[in-house]
Design a protein around this nucleic acid. Structure first.
Lengths: 407, 407
DNA sequence: GTCCACTTTGTGTTTTTTCACAAAGTGGAC
DNA sequence: GTCCACTTTGTGAAAAAACACAAAGTGGAC
């Protein structure tokens, strides 16, 4: 009764066997839609399949289309071969698909292109049979991969927690990363601890980023830590990174809006010794962006946060009573005594470059109120008419104070 | 013939002997007008003498008056006892003075208050004789002091050049400085190498600073390095320091205008281990003030230079091609192509908080020209309407570029 | 509760800044 | 030399911002 053997030595031979049994092109993918095997059936094939084989992964557009239309969900839920009508918009001819599952765990998919004639029940049974055989093969691979991944993740976390690497560390790291490539450490921070399910989805999005190459990654509480480098030339590294960061964060917010993902990218580094420092830089970015979401809404990298780099240092010094800005102190005293908001007003007055109207609208008050407050501030400190460096210093002092408070 | 013995065991006994010989109060000072000895003559004395004895130093006002009126110069030049009429404005009654000299080197002075009767020639001869005896005593002291000073200076320079102090270093330093006092390292930078003569004058001004206590000092090329702490309470340390820095720099500029002295004060530190870091901070201040005299005209401390702290780092990263600000690059390209000054214009536009009039007057151009350029810049980059942190970042990038160029 | 000092808002007026446009200047390509 | 694209300056009109001042609101001291 079965059309296939009990087992095959590899997914390639399995794909070939299924392909011969139902006389149609077959592809087998893992759960990330990465190509695992495909049959060499000579029949005509469609653009989507060609792109998949060339790129060793199903094109992003196709995956998105299949998810959005609910087809993939149906394939997963049904756990039976599903016939899918052609979706020419994304270059997909008619085909059949079956999920490869272990309990509720999706391991992968088998796809079969349709020939001129529709699929018969018998052919679909062959696909179903193929999925069951593929399961065993995929489980072996998945288990192996998982073991390696877990070990690497443990190692990566250890490295990131070690300021001064041992030579053993260094040797192993150098095996992992190409030398003399401008690396970055990027943190993807979520508002909640990253569950295995969320991690899975995040890894998937990460793996599909065309612009970057991931060296290592690891989960640490609410943060996904990624050591990566840009695929672009060194000269374009920065531009490429900045563009990528914008795209990537938008993408993350689209897909994971509920956990409010936020990026923090370190400066570039070339030596694995710098991983610890890079980690601190990336952490500083996410931490500052957490505290100042409005002000740092469009910044992703340590470079971009600009003068905010100074804020934690300043905050610490204020904490140690090493630094107190006389101007701000006077204003704060006044604020307490008169229930006013002079410090906040000054902050946004500086932020908005002295534009009274914008300050008023941001604070939801009358422009004349802002004007009145500014005049008060001038009476108390005459700080508003100083130059940018001084204004920036005052601004930083205010921000440092807030940084401490929120702590 | 001589009225005094050939030698005395101490300056105190000498002062006493002279006082008895001419029956008038006697004080002996070193070249810095620090009190070395005084007679206990019971006669009435004047406010200046009381203040001198109490403060163990001639009051600053008196010294200034004597210098400005040329009296002290006359005393030094004449090398003979000089009778000085009363200068009641500074609390000085009539007196006689004689310089204690070794060749052309001033070692100190002997002062004698007048009694009701004028000084006789004989009395003046006694003074002259006293000066000659004091010379021997002072030379011994001076030589000893000089040897100790030179050794300490050498030690201090060694410490400042050592990032990681040995325990021997640390022990000796801890003997010199009181523990748990907020120290600062201040650099006084001159436009020329500090000659021994200049050093002498600088040390004198330094020694007369009431607000600070000097732990160690040393000359290093064009810089006078001073380890000191404020005499005020810890809580007022910062305020006191800032006030002192303003006063002191004004004073230095008055007295040493020809070498353009400039201060650079480190952050406060409590451990001698921090001397090296403090040195770097102070150096950063002087170096930045040298490069940006206009912008940092009123700043003295590492804290005060505010965001300029970032400039050298940024400059270095630009040098390594790690950082290029796309906005500024585009403007620079345009500047080169069209012989314009967009970058400079933007810099001062930011500096003057978007005040077109002030920018125009600073650059000596028509306000409309500024307006025209700003519009050009907006067309090229639309950077002018961003928030303070971003403007500050751009400003810093410009400044970092200049920092590098001037190097 | 009243008083009082201070803050906030609303109104027109005055001052300042920006804008549009024209004329003049500049410097390199040819 | 001319041409041309762009910059700089000058002028008056238009827009925006700041200002003065009055009225209303607020909150603590008593």
């Amino acid at each position: 009764m079965p059309f296939l053997q009990k087992s095959y030595e590899s997914l390639d031979t399995l794909a070939e066997a299924i392909g011969q049994a139902i006389r149609a092109p077959i592809t087998i993918e893992n759960r990330h839609h990465q190509l695992l095997a495909y049959s060499t059936h000579p029949d005509s094939t469609d653009p989507a399949r060609i792109a998949t084989i060339i790129g060793r992964r199903v094109p992003e557009a196709v995956i998105e289309d299949l998810w959005e239309s609910g087809i993939l969900q149906e394939v997963i839920d049904r756990d039976e071969p599903v016939v899918i009508p052609a979706r020419m918009a994304v270059g997909l001819g008619e085909r059949a698909a079956v999920v490869i599952k272990q309990q509720d765990d999706v391991l992968g998919y088998i796809w079969s292109l349709a020939r001129t004639t529709p699929f018969s029940d018998q052919e679909l049974t062959v696909l179903k049979e193929g999925a069951s055989i593929a399961k065993k093969l995929l489980m072996t691979i998945a288990m192996h991969e998982r073991r390696i991944d877990a070990e690497l993740e443990r190692f990566f976390l250890e490295v990131l927690a070690t300021p001064n690497l041992s030579s053993a560390h260094r040797e192993r790291l150098d095996e992992l990363a190409p030398i003399a490539v401008a690396s970055r450490l990027t943190i993807i921070e979520c508002s909640q601890p990253i569950t295995p399910q969320l991690a899975e989805r995040l890894f998937y999005v990460l793996a599909t980023q065309q612009a970057i190459e991931v060296v290592l990654h690891a989960i640490d509480g609410q943060q996904l830590l990624v050591w990566h480098y840009m695929k672009s030339e060194l000269a374009e590294e920065e531009t490429a990174l900045l563009q990528w960061a914008i795209r990537f964060e938008t993408q993350l917010r689209d897909k994971f809006n509920e956990v409010e993902p936020r990026l923090g990218v370190s400066r570039r580094f070339f030596e694995s010794d710098m991983l610890y420092a890079a980690m601190e830089e990336a952490r500083r970015v996410t931490s500052l962006r957490r505290k100042f979401p409005y002000e740092l809404a469009t910044t992703h990298t340590f470079e971009q946060i600009g003068i905010y780099q100074l804020v934690p240092d300043l905050a610490r010094r204020i904490g140690l009573r090493l630094e107190t800005h006389p101007t701000i102190e006077r204003l704060q005293t006044y604020d307490v005594a008169h229930h006013t908001e002079l410090v906040t007003t000054l902050e946004w007055y500086f932020y908005f470059d002295g534009n009274v109207k914008r300050v008023a609208s941001h604070l939801h008050i009358h422009p004349n109120t802002v004007l009145y407050r500014i005049r008060r501030i001038e009476e108390l400190t005459n700080i508003t008419q100083v130059s940018l460096p001084e204004r920036a210093a005052v601004y930083l002092a205010i921000k440092a104070g807030q940084y401490r408070q929120d702590d």
